[in-house]
């Protein structure tokens, strides 16, 4: 078993796809780097923190992108974002069997924040174009940096999300929320609380991810292969269904003011409301055991 979390982006590509099949576009040798980081005197990466290209997965042609969390937390800058947009537009033109996004990102890269923000919205539009054309977009989340900010929204625009239990998917990071509203709002050093709020098990139980796997590259590969035929068109009916699900969830969680006990955990309350038995046990359970509990 090889830990997906501990692999670099390129190790993931080498191990997850059919052996030797990854062909990279704009590889590091072409040195397409961020001009903005250079201007700020910040070290660049020759791939701007993302590798894009084509490959085979279980004999099927796929396009794939992998974000490198070790470079600026996988933050999206102008070049990084444009590589993702280029890959998605190329998928729309060349029609691979699927697009894989090995996401690991804190969201917009602050050093080029305006360009990153616009880029993330361009990625969203390009991704939704690919999805509308009937090609499944599959997002894999299991890196140490999680999938946050604009990339957390992008992930939820995809057809299919695979997460490990150590993976995290959310919008604002716990440190940002703590800095904004204090440690009582969100104690970012409380790892158990962070994972109950954003981690793979929680996202599985709420249906925010479509597959929950162990932190194992082979498990991610198997889940990605299983998702290859899973195009989910975004129809009006599908969006109405999504709206009902999110509205019911919003109302299922009692607002803080109405609970008597101040120490009752909101994640546990939500899981209980979703019909999960012995919800307080969830963090202690194995991935297999949690997988069997989903009600949505």
């Amino acid at each position: 078993m090889i830990s997906y979390a501990e692999c670099s982006a390129r190790e993931r590509l080498a191990l997850l796809l059919d052996a030797g099949s990854f062909h990279e576009w704009l590889p590091p040798s072409e040195r397409v780097t961020s001009p903005h980081l250079a201007q700020l005197g910040v070290p660049c990466a020759f791939d701007d923190g993302v590798a894009v290209g084509r490959a085979m997965l279980d004999g099927h042609s796929v396009f794939v992108a992998a974000q490198e969390g070790a470079f600026m937390g996988g933050g999206v800058g102008e070049v990084h974002g444009a590589k993702l947009v280029g890959l998605l537009q190329r998928a729309l033109r060349d029609r691979p069997a699927a697009v894989l996004l090995l996401a690991e990102s804190g969201g917009v890269r602050l050093h080029e924040a305006n360009a990153g923000l616009i880029a993330v919205s361009e990625v969203m539009r390009a991704l939704l174009d690919v999805r509308a054309a009937g090609m499944p977009v599959i997002v894999l989340i299991g890196g140490a940096n999680g999938c946050f900010g604009g990339m957390g929204i992008v992930a939820r625009c995809a057809d299919h999300i695979v997460m490990s239990d150590v993976g995290r998917l959310a919008m604002s990071g716990p440190e940002v929320i703590e800095a904004s509203h204090g440690v009582d709002e969100f104690d970012s050093r409380d790892r158990a609380l962070v994972w109950r709020t954003t981690g793979g098990k929680h996202r599985w139980l709420t249906g925010d991810c479509d597959a929950l796997v162990e932190d194992d590259v082979a498990a991610f590969r198997a889940a990605a292969i299983a998702a290859l035929s899973g195009s989910k068109p975004l129809t009006l009916a599908a969006l109405e269904q999504e709206h009902v699900l999110l509205t019911e969830r919003l109302h299922a969680l009692p607002s803080t003011g109405t609970t008597n006990s101040t120490d009752s955990d909101e994640a546990t309350l939500l899981w209980t409301a979703l019909g999960i038995p012995d919800a307080q046990q969830v963090p202690e359970l194995s991935v297999d055991a949690v997988r069997a509990l989903r009600t949505v």
């Binding site: 998917l169 604002s172 969680l253």
Partner: peptide, 17 residues
Amino acid sequence: RRDELLGINRAMAHLGA
């Protein structure tokens, strides 16, 4: 934290979609 727990990124994606 409550919005994160409820999947604010999913609600945003739903609006965008």
